[in-house]
Design a protein around this nucleic acid. Structure first.
Lengths: 252, 252
DNA sequence: CATAAGGCTTAACGTAACGTGAAGGTCAAC
DNA sequence: GTTGACCTTCACGTTACGTTAAGCCTTATG
């Protein structure tokens, strides 16, 4: 059986362009040319194309396929074994990616589809989770388990009403921090008022307040990129300024 | 914090070229240019880049990322859902490919390392598995479990000697089919002899023969691409011809 | 026999996401 | 003042083809 480009294309499912390309790069040349220059493929070429498509399925590059096809002494097995390993890694990675995308969707959906009540619940839990994960260890080491657990318990125990109040206080605090920052002086009345608002904000979740702990928290803010990012998002350099203001407040 | 190209590159792990490219396509523009034309990135750009890299991790195209980043009203969720579907298809496909590669390795290894006995065993088991997976359901529905199970049992029970005989009969059958096909007539003596050889071949594994079942098998051959590919590989259009010949033989 | 439809050819540009020089300006340090 | 490390803008290379474009060949039909 002999085939022209289009016939072989239909037979094999690849495009005519692909066959011409394979000819161009020397991967699969037609058996002969017709008198008018048409490419004519024979049985051998059909079989070869099957082989090529097989390796292509395996995501082997055409360059490698050319090697495999043209050098029968090519170490096929170890090449395939390496290949299967790469595929498995890719497979695992894809799994990871899919689950991340799904989680992202869940979160985003949560933001648009959940009731305010549910949102509130989810938010609180998430906050505690994140705090636990990122700072739990550090804080536990410095202040002991009781403080952390109490803080979490208190946060979970917050009513939605209190939570809203807490958010309002935070907003007030950020505004005052900005005013203070503009004076450039951590000891300015504005900066000190900001620190007091910060203290008020903390009392929503802190079991008991101490100036030392407050100052320590300021240090953590500065040294931890997540907090730095959070406060600097509102005021560039605000984190350091807040720490300095807390130092003044705590008389440190 | 302000960064030049190279500094942000080190910070984020991408190349300088990548940052210039992102500037070029409007995905991430620097906060400003220095007096000498250097790109200067600020905190906002660092955060944005983080977002971009996050979506890139999820294999979202830069074009889509641009949409997501620049249009807050972009339908993120359905975009991500479509995306996750694509990823899952890719995932399933990869699985398929991996199993194909592994089978190939097995075969190649078998070809060089296994004894003839083992080769023979593996081949039979593999055949049964594949038949079961692809046609088991169909055949079971049509002829009942007993026929299938008996057929499998019989094939497993074949001696190496019988198996070789079976292969010889198949070869004879294919040759006769070709002769019949060349006459163009399914009722020709050659074609009918081919059908008889096919019957003989079947009896190696079929518990009992019936003309109805034989004719049904002919239909399945034609409707199932795997069989079509197998028979047409030897004789183009041979599958349909075989079915027609079986019809004649069965008086259908 | 002319013409139209469809298949064939080569040539050459387009794609995605950058890598890799080349040619030349800028900046901090010695 | 001169290295050397950075920065800039071109601009071509990469992979495996897709997509016109211009023009020749073959076959069917009026």
């Amino acid at each position: 059986m002999e085939y022209t480009v289009q016939q072989l294309a239909k037979l094999s499912g690849v495009s005519g362009r692909t066959l011409r390309y394979y000819d161009e790069i020397g991967l699969l040349k037609p058996a002969r040319l017709s008198s008018s220059g048409y490419r004519i493929y024979g049985q051998k070429e059909v079989d070869l194309l099957q082989q090529i498509l097989f390796y292509r399925e395996l995501e082997v590059s055409l360059e490698e396929i050319t090697s495999i096809i043209h050098h029968p002494d090519f170490d096929l097995i170890s090449a395939l074994q390496q290949h299967v390993q790469k595929l498995q890694e890719k497979h695992a990675r894809l799994e990871q990616i899919i689950s991340t995308v799904q989680k992202t969707i869940e979160n985003k959906e949560g933001g648009t589809l959940m009731t305010d009540e549910e949102k509130f619940e989810g938010f609180k839990k998430k906050l505690i989770n994140e705090n636990e994960k990122k700072y739990g260890k550090e804080v536990r080491e410095q202040y002991g388990d009781e403080v952390v657990d109490d803080s979490n318990a208190k946060m979970m125990g917050l009513s939605e009403d209190d939570f809203k109040k807490m958010q309002e206080v935070e907003k007030e605090f950020l505004e005052e921090l900005k005013k203070g920052y503009e004076t450039g002086d951590p000891a300015s009345p504005e900066a000190q008022k900001a620190v007091e608002l910060h203290k008020k904000w903390l009392s929503f979740t802190w079991p008991q307040y101490s100036k030392e702990a407050h100052a320590g928290l300021g240090d953590m803010y500065v040294s931890d990129e997540r907090f730095t990012a959070y406060y600097d998002q509102h005021i560039e350099g605000g984190t350091r300024f807040l720490r300095d203001a807390i130092y003044v407040y705590a008389g440190k």
